[in-house]
Design a protein around this nucleic acid. Structure first.
Lengths: 126, 126
DNA sequence: TTAATATATGCTTATCTGCGCATATATTAT
DNA sequence: ATAATATATGCGCAGATAAGCATATATTAA
């Protein structure tokens, strides 16, 4: 993908939200975890993540039924500057996204997440 | 316009070419001069310039029948970083655009341009 | 005044694209 | 094996938008 086409990829609100979360946290996240953060349907999140990956902005790693996405390392000057610009963006929505995201990740790391339905988290009891 | 919507404005190829020319040269240019550089029809260039202006990326100044557009000063961190990113973009098309643009501007400054038809320049003879 | 030039703007069309939905595939738990 | 979960993808629709075209307005030149 040509560098200048990156603007097209980032011009979608949902994709920008997704990318900003991953950029700010530097966390590897699964599709369902991004779902929780951005509160969007699975098929959309999946598509957006794949587009971001196709554009070279994200890298992916499969692990069982989970697919983890994270910001790709880049030595490209354009991408580096762009990332700085995106980091400097402020918006209440991003704050909310980040809050939900961090909570979700925390639960994963504590092995408390069992499944996710309709953007609600359920914890294993027995 | 919200900051993040700037990506939408810059996601169009023609608009990015226009903005890059003005960003690299820091020159005030009229619509017809941008036409020469980008080799696009007048109504399209006019629309794109107005969109870039509306987005706050360009400022405009009217002088007789000419309207000059130039990159707007910005103290916004996001815009400043974004401009750096755009400056670092390399592409053969941008080189060609810049070449045509500089030639056109040079002729204006030497008062050699009289009119512009079909992207071709005509010089006053008598 | 008349003609030419510079710019802006409706209107239409074709294309793009994001979303919703259904569904397929793969992996894990019971 | 069966059920549940995670992810991916094809299809259709609706909304957005870039480009082409015609035309309107304003300014300058002859």
């Amino acid at each position: 993908m040509k560098q200048e086409e990156i603007f097209k990829i980032l011009s979608d609100k949902t994709r920008l939200r997704i990318y900003k979360i991953l950029l700010e946290t530097k966390i590897e996240a699964a599709v369902c975890e991004v779902m929780t953060a951005v509160q969007c349907t699975q098929y959309n999140i999946s598509k957006h993540l794949r587009l971001l990956h196709f554009a070279g902005l994200l890298q992916e790693r499969k692990n069982g039924r989970w697919v983890f996405y994270s910001v790709a390392d880049s030595k490209n000057k354009f991408i580096i500057q762009l990332n700085k610009a995106i980091k400097s963006l402020k918006n209440e929505i991003y704050k909310q996204d980040l809050k939900r995201f961090k909570l979700r990740i925390k639960m994963r790391k504590n092995n408390k997440i069992q499944f996710c339905v309709d953007n609600k988290l359920f914890r294993k009891v027995s």
